[in-house]
Write a protein that binds this DNA or RNA. Sequence first.
DNA 1: GTTTTATAGTTGTATATACAAATGTATCGT
DNA 2: ACGATACATTTGTATATACAACTATAAAAC
Lengths: 153, 153
Amino acid sequence: MTIEDVIKSTVKMDNPKRVILNIMYTQNVLQDKFNEVLKPYDLSGEQYNVLRILRGQKGNPANMCVIQDRMLAKTSNTTRLVDKLLLKDFVTRNVCPNNRRKIEVAITEKGLDVLTELDPKVIEHENVFSENLTTAELELLNELLEKFRNQKN
Amino acid sequence: MTIEDVIKSTVKMDNPKRVILNIMYTQNVLQDKFNEVLKPYDLSGEQYNVLRILRGQKGNPANMCVIQDRMLAKTSNTTRLVDKLLLKDFVTRNVCPNNRRKIEVAITEKGLDVLTELDPKVIEHENVFSENLTTAELELLNELLEKFRNQKN
DNA sequence: GTTTTATAGTTGTATATACAAATGTATCGT
DNA sequence: ACGATACATTTGTATATACAACTATAAAAC
């Protein structure tokens, strides 16, 4: 299915427009599929992302700004995402004793358990799309996306 | 800036994960930039998309389900998007006389004027990212994205 | 002709996103 | 020490997204 099929366009678009629509739409497809994976666990994609970042801390807590910094969607509202995770007992939240402006967020056992349960499903999700491409093609796709994204100005 | 830099990952990820994150993040960057273009016109990306679809109708109105069908984000709530456009007098909305279940949405002169004003800025937005890639690379990127997206199951 | 089923759209609710303003705390300059 | 400034986070508000439930109309079944 080409991007023209997706949006029922009768006219063939130029390359710059096609690339943008292909990226936007492919992201949509990926996100929808990933939401399905997460749905039974009552987690949103960004909530999962926060948990994943916290696990990456290997026991150390992370400040709000550290979490923010490591997220894909840089405009996410970390406070409220952490609120939601707190309600589910997936994280703890404490004022940092050294600097009372900062908040220390850490993942709980329960949060780690959910991630462990999710791990194989996440890997499956990641791999199913990539199966259509060879390793060389995947590397090329990564290169092209990074080159595309990193325009000069 | 590689995707590892973006999320401050110290470990190099495998290709399937990198591709997914690259697509997700690149879409984020594109959307943020496009929102900046639209901001002075008080339009969201999806509202713009609806207007673009209506212009593509060349004078004919479009039903809600036709609009839905041509949108990138298939889960958008067309009713409410059209509501917002109606408030700005960018569209009209009428019950279809032949089938009273259907709604006919059409773009107004005011809506067309906004699109005309936006056209050069949209093209500029589309092209600025593509300037880093050759035509062959752009075509390849399109191919790879479509191949990646269209997995068997 | 009346009941079922399908279609088209709207509404409700919870969550997420975008962004500005506000709060509380630490640091710097003098 | 004091005010100004910077930093870390929270809160407010409007909009958008996701998805289920609901309403209204049309078509099909019998």
